[in-house]
Design a protein around this nucleic acid. Structure first.
Length: 740
DNA sequence: ACGGGCGTCTTTTTT
DNA sequence: AGACGCCCGT
């Protein structure tokens, strides 16, 4: 049949796999998308599976679209009914149907990182906690990780050892959850967690979906977290036709809760799973693959895999030593010029990969100066612009009036004379009637202490919003949004201002309108909720327009799953890539190395790696050494331009990583590998996140975060008196405090 | 209520 | 270096 034409043996085996669970370990560029699309087509055409009974989960919406398109190319029918999308969008789709079953309303808002921060700040303030000691982002990270693993705060924090700090942490978590509920809002983590909760709460709903999804596919399985795994496990436990595709070497989202041991869990929960390895690479030259292999082999506990290709050796990988970031940009531009002037490569064949978003700026400037079109993935995002966020906040309030975070954002934008004092009174009243701001506003005549002026402003604001809610039912989304922007006075204020910035804001609003119109065209029945959810669940890659012919600038994380004929890996300096927070500690080097591996394997034909001797960070000059990863490259395969001092870095070889670390690693978050014995100051096994400790100098504190170091563990501890500190457990003079 | 001036912190990576 | 929040003067 057509579905297996041109596939290698292993790929064919995966495509034709009969019933039951299947684990495809797919090396970079080994044609996994091909396997997925062909298998889907095969199931539909040959096995007569109805597309609506297939669920395929991808990492970005773009990947879903691509997969859909490619599968359609193999089919005679269409794929309209297939469920294909990201974890988050699939969950939203389910929750919009059934979330009332677990006490939310179907019009729930979806909170992004900024909304989360705003909400957490409220919590910290409301509990009267010291903002220096309880950093919103740190608390949020903790909360997020708890949610990712499906644990509740009470699972996480042991009742027997309560103390003020721990009590506060739990209080914050609880208040945060309460506020989300109060605002009828879900954060990103909730989208997954609440869906699992829904399934656990209502077996009828679960059974419905278990029966519906006869075949389930999960792409990029190595980057799923605990909650996502639970979701898959629940859904797949009926038909057990679960096909996951992943590569442990490309696991780069550990910091976000991704748990590579899900692969082990899968083998336990679906013990009959068949494993197929894809090792033939169709993307890169042999030189590039050798370079990639020579990097990744320095990691421990891998599932052994060795990429090979029958393609040519190709050109040598070039390592460039440049003086600073401007020199780096210049060098890259010259290379691009060199390779594109004879028409051999198009601009869209080039990609610049960096470790942190901040590095894009120099390149943007260089491209702009030289009039070279580029497209920037991530970074300063369109949807992060103030004016767009304001409009979205309006729409959210119209959709879900109890969303206080959004309401507070726009109640005085544009200026309506509703200031801090007025809002203080309104919110106090809202708390008094145990309700939301919007409810309070509906009751504006009864709010004490308002000036007549403020009362009038509030009244007309509510009237206006009520009007929108009615109006929304009557007309299409594009027209509706245009009306909102107009009536709200946003355009008027900007036009009055009339400077360059205001003009660019107006243009952005114009662009937002065309997004809405486009949405309406493609989704004639789409609701305002669908529109808003669609926007908030876009990944950076999704948000970036495919410009005709432009160089792509993006982080290595964003580049996952993409490929380019020519790749520039820039900023390959110790401390930046691998990134290291402070001079004392290195972060998880193995994940950094995997990141490096992902970057290298994006390249098809040419790969340039550059490192600068001087880099300006925070406006300060820093001398930097070449990345340790550069020294892991095989000498005979690289072409070094300029000096590379091999003695310089010899020290890194001594920092060998405990070879057993990977194997010891267990999937229970609370159990961690022991550090090597000999210089253990405290029984490390006893120390968990949440453990109360006493430090010789800094007194009492609570462990907020634990991280594995090379052969040690680093604890982030919040001390009662001195606040946040980072310590290595093997040498820190701390002891565990029992009781309360 | 609002805008300007000054001090602070930042940067890991993102659905 | 730049963004952001905070304080103060209008």
């Amino acid at each position: 049949m057509d579905y297996i034409k041109g596939l290698n043996d292993r790929q064919r085996e995966a495509v034709l796999h009969d019933e039951g669970p299947l684990l495809v370990l797919a090396g970079a560029g080994s044609g996994k998308t091909r396997v997925l699309t062909h298998r889907i087509a095969y199931l539909i055409e040959e096995r007569g599976i109805f597309p609506g009974n297939i669920l395929a989960i991808t990492f970005t919406n773009k990947a879903a679209d691509e997969m859909k398109e490619r599968a359609i190319g193999l089919l005679s029918g269409n794929l309209d009914r297939i469920w294909m999308g990201t974890f988050h969008s699939i969950c939203v789709r389910i929750l919009r149907q059934h979330i009332d079953r677990i006490g939310f309303e179907r019009a729930f808002s979806i909170y992004d990182r900024n909304d989360q921060i705003a909400l957490m700040r409220e919590c910290i303030e409301e509990l009267g906690l010291n903002e220096d000691r309880y950093k919103d982002r740190l608390v949020l990270n903790m909360v997020g990780r708890i949610k990712d693993s499906m644990a509740s705060p009470d699972d996480y924090i042991d009742e027997r050892y309560m103390d003020p700090v721990r009590e506060n942490m739990r209080g914050l978590y609880r208040l945060y959850e309460k506020k989300l509920k109060h605002n009828n809002a879900l954060d990103f983590d909730d989208l997954i967690k609440r869906t699992v909760e829904l399934f656990r709460a209502d077996s009828d709903i679960l059974e419905y979906y278990q029966r519906k999804f006869e075949y389930i596919f999960v792409d990029e399985f190595q980057d799923t977290n605990g909650a996502q795994y639970q979701l898959i496990r629940l859904l797949a436990s009926g038909h057990r036709n679960l096909c996951v595709v992943g590569d442990d070497d490309q696991s780069i989202f550990g910091w976000r809760g991704a748990d590579i041991t899900n692969i082990l869990s899968l083998k336990e929960d679906f013990h009959e799973a068949k494993t197929i390895k894809l090792e033939q690479n169709y993307r890169s030259t042999q030189n590039i693959l050798d370079v990639a292999n020579s990097i990744i082999k320095n990691n421990n506990g891998r599932m052994e895999k060795r990429l090979w290709t029958d393609r040519d050796r190709g050109k040598q990988v070039v390592v460039e030593n440049v003086s600073d970031q401007d020199d780096e940009a210049r060098t890259v531009l010259n290379r691009i010029w060199e390779h594109s002037k004879d028409g051999h490569y198009k601009l869209s064949d080039f990609a610049i990969l960096y470790r942190t978003n901040a590095q894009s700026r120099v390149f943007e400037e260089a491209f702009m100066r030289n009039d070279i079109p580029y497209r920037l993935v991530g970074g300063l995002k369109f949807y992060d612009r103030k004016e767009i966020k304001d409009i979205i906040a309006y729409l959210r309030v119209i959709q879900n009036p109890v969303d206080d975070i959004s309401l507070r954002r726009i109640i005085n934008v544009p200026r309506r004379g509703i200031g801090r004092v007025t809002m203080g009174r309104v919110e106090e009243y809202a708390r008094g009637i145990d309700s939301n701001i919007y409810d309070a506003l509906m009751d504006v005549e009864n709010i004490p202490g308002l000036s007549a002026r403020a009362r009038n402003s509030l009244r007309s604001f509510v009237d206006m919003m009520n009007g929108f809610m009615e109006r929304q039912k009557a007309i299409g989304i594009g027209e509706f949004i245009e009306e909102v922007i107009e009536k709200v006075g946003y355009i008027g204020e900007l036009e009055d201002k009339g400077d360059e910035e205001a003009q660019s804001r107006l243009n952005n609003i114009e662009e937002f309108l065309s997004v809405a119109v486009e949405f309406e065209t493609y989704n004639p029945d789409g609701s305002l909720e669908d529109f808003l959810a669609g926007i908030s669940l876009l990944s950076d890659v999704d948000k970036t327009e495919d410009r005709d012919d432009a160089v792509t600038l993006l982080t290595v994380h964003s580049a996952k799953g993409l490929e380019f004929p020519v790749v520039f890996m820039v900023g390959m300096e110790e401390g930046l890539f691998p990134i290291i927070r402070d001079s004392e500690s290195d972060s998880d080097i193995e994940e950094e190395r995997r990141l490096c591996y992902v970057a290298i394997t994006r390249a098809e034909e040419l790969l340039y790696i550059s490192h600068a001797r001087v880099r300006t960070i925070y406006g300060r000059m820093n001398y930097s050494k070449p990345s340790r990863f550069i020294y892991e490259l095989p000498e005979d395969l690289i072409d070094v331009k300029g000096e590379l001092n091999r003695d310089f870095h010899r020290g890194f070889n001594d920092m060998a990583i405990n070879p057993n670390e990977r194997l010891i690693r267990v999937r229970d978050y609370t159990r961690r590998p022991m550090a090597p014995s000999g210089r253990v100051a405290v029984d490390q096994d006893q120390i968990k996140e949440g453990t109360k400790v006493k430090h010789a100098k800094w007194g009492f504190g609570i462990v907020a975060q634990l991280k594995d170091r090379d052969d040690d563990r680093e604890a982030t501890i919040i001390f009662d008196d001195v606040g946040l500190k980072r310590l290595l457990l093997s040498i820190a003079p701390i002891e565990i405090v029992n009781g309360g």
